[in-house]
Design a protein around this nucleic acid. Structure first.
Lengths: 149, 149
DNA sequence: ATGAATGCAAAACTTTTGCAGGACG
DNA sequence: CGTCCTGCAAAAGTTTTGCATTCAT
């Protein structure tokens, strides 16, 4: 955990930004809730425990900054709020989402299933893939069990 | 074109809704701009040519209604506005997006590349897929040509 | 001292809602 | 009438911005 903070600190510094206490608190919240796809408001509320004086604007600015540096990924699931995820490496994002339309659960698949497709894109469309996003909507296994009982 | 309007009219009526002049104007705008991913505001401005008295709220309500009926698909590309696409059939949506991070162009792949993956999801995760979404970010072939010249 | 970063409040923007009036069977 | 639908205006919600102040060098 400390190592990951240190790495992010260096990413900031190499672009001329500082890891201020507010930014560190924000990053720690993201680290402690890596599974969660937090919205800016979510992050704000959690950060307030660590740094009660922080303002919502600072959280937005921090998330925006981290997003520009590709430390976090900004996502939209169609519910009107942006959600933010720490990236595991600073380069590519290799997981997919299973969104249950019945209970709203959001599961993840950590494998990258798209390598073949990206090759096809490169060859057939001459499109150089930098990142991708793959979401499935459907019924999760829990709801299927529930529905059948 | 008229045939497609007629079909949408029937879809509305079968659920107890009417194809009012405002709704028809909205659908026509969507039909005439099928390649674009229009935002509600875009639709509103285009619809005003056909029906100047229409209100923005009506456009939102119409798009929401058509979305519920799966006549249009509501999408988010991360720029803070929802965008709406007519579906070709009323069941599944089988195209993917190539988003160029350099020029912002949005190309589409009309094939469905995910059938295999959906089988795997069904077998390995017991997730019943109803719909999916696949976007790639990268550099489009036009920008690659431009960059190399 | 200088530039970067913050907090607060206000503003901007997208989307939703309340409500009075209209259309239409 | 009754119900669905509309336009307008107001409200709600998220995100951005302006600005004075504070914080680090």
């Amino acid at each position: 955990m400390e190592a990951r903070i240190e790495k992010i600190k260096q990413q900031l510094q190499s672009h001329g930004f500082k890891l201020t206490p507010q930014r560190e608190a924000t990053v720690r919240v993201l680290l402690e809730n890596e599974e969660d796809h937090l919205s800016a408001e979510d992050v704000f509320m959690l950060v307030k425990d660590k740094a009660p004086e922080i303002g919502l604007a600072t959280v937005y600015r921090t998330l925006e900054l981290l997003s520009d540096l590709h430390v976090v990924e900004k996502m939209n699931f169609g519910d009107g709020v942006a959600r933010y995820d720490l990236r595991n490496d600073s380069t590519r994002h290799h997981h997919h989402h299973l969104i249950c339309v019945q209970c709203g659960a959001l599961d993840e698949i950590m494998e990258d299933w798209l390598t073949d497709l990206e090759l096809r894109l490169e060859n057939e469309y001459r499109f150089q893939v930098l990142d991708h996003r793959l979401d499935f909507q459907g019924i999760c296994h829990r709801c299927r069990d529930k529905n059948n009982s």
